[in-house]
């Protein structure tokens, strides 16, 4: 057993009367890369949004590095106090499908803003680290550009740099390539692969099955708000048991 970064127990989420997540449990260990796959409407993005606390949970527990962010009090969920929450929010970053960069800030400012404002770190030190991150993302030349001047792939790389600048223990990716042209998808997948090689803990919601198979340590297949199968990619993808997953995979590889 490794060091658990994230633990989700019996997560339940509903919108009105529609239950979108039924009793989801999963855990992510340090250095692990988890890919979540499944058809649209299966609840995978909602799961990510609950884990990053963009959505509130209706049942279950959410634990980061042993600290309970959300506890189940039987009839619903209670969230940790603001101070604990601030600590917990430092532990993860999220990369959005639509990047959500700040359009009025340059690339460099996008990366530097949160470490300076939220973490109150020294500007000069943050700038040094931000430039290193941008170099890693192949964006050295674009540090002073604005998001509107960048391609989708470049914007997504900025948003990855922005998340990494906070020095999170883990990163979530919500369909990071879905808003990109196919030829730009590769550059993002390459970056994620590089992060995986550096043992960054990651949870990736993706439609790129072959990528999931290549880079993930664990694949989770979701449908209709349930986890249908999970396990090593070679077991789940190449040797799937359920009809649902078989049908999904054959559709995806058509």
């Amino acid at each position: 057993m490794g060091n658990k970064i994230l633990e989700i127990n019996h997560l339940k989420k509903q919108f009105g009367d529609t239950v979108v997540l039924h009793d989801i449990s999963m855990s992510v260990e340090a250095g692990e890369v988890v890919a979540i796959i499944g058809p649209s409407g299966s609840g995978k993005s909602t799961l990510l949004r609950c884990a990053t606390m963009l959505e509130t949970m209706d049942g279950g527990e959410l634990i980061y590095e042993g600290i309970k962010a959300v506890r189940d009090n039987g009839s619903g969920c209670s969230y940790a106090d603001a101070l604990t929450m601030r600590d917990i929010k430092k532990k993860f970053g999220l990369v959005f499908q639509n990047f959500n960069l700040f359009p009025h800030y340059s690339v460099l400012q996008n990366v530097m803003e949160a470490p300076i404002v939220v973490q109150k770190r020294d500007r000069a030190e943050v700038e040094k680290e931000a430039r290193v991150l941008l170099e890693k993302m192949g964006l050295t030349e674009r540090a002073d550009a604005y998001p509107c001047q960048l391609s989708g792939g470049q914007q997504q790389r900025v948003s990855i740099a922005r998340a990494l600048a906070m020095k999170p223990d883990m990163l979530f990716f919500d369909e990071p390539t879905s808003a990109l042209d196919p030829e730009l998808t590769g550059e993002i997948l390459k970056v994620i692969k590089q992060l995986a090689a550096e043992k960054m803990t990651m949870v990736i919601v993706t439609h790129e099955i072959s990528f999931a198979k290549n880079v993930a340590d664990k694949v989770v297949f979701m449908a209709d708000g349930y986890v249908i199968e999970e396990g090593r990619p070679e077991d789940v993808i190449d040797n799937c048991q359920s009809e649902r997953l078989k049908a999904f995979l054959s559709k995806m590889t058509e």
Binding site: F92, G93, F102
Partner: peptide
Amino acid sequence: PVGQYEASAVLGFTKGQ
């Protein structure tokens, strides 16, 4: 866009910030 609020929330900005 709501994404601006979400990106800020995940980065840990307070509502005021």
